[in-house]
Amino acid sequence: MGIAIYMLAFALLVVGIYGVIAKRNVIKIILGILIIDYAVNMLLVLVGYRRDGVAPILSEGQDAKAWAATSVDPLPQAMVLTSIVIGLGLTALMVAMAIRLYQKYGTFDMNEIRKLKG
């Protein structure tokens, strides 16, 4: 059970990579990248997971020690947030580039977007 959930994250990662490699449509490639992003984010959250853990927020009147013994790991959640922000920036850039590519080439098909050799 424990390992299966990690496998799910990796399966998602593989789906994303498949999308990036096999699809020739710019938009689908961007979606593949996003799936990869979310797979990694999920892995990060899972790493901090603890069975029956509570949210890592210390509320008023709570004993800090007892709370720390039951809460999930907050650090991966902070990392996920950072990673989401990076993903947001990347998505905006990718979409902007896709639109520009469409303006220049008149297509979203990567097979036709090849003015460069190689």
Binding site: I33, M97, L101, I113, L116
Partner: peptide, 14 residues
């Protein structure tokens, strides 16, 4: 330039 940058972007992100 856009084509090169897009390629770079995709591979770099992976």
């Amino acid at each position: 330039e856009l084509e090169a940058a897009f390629k770079y972007l995709i591979l770099g992100t992976v």
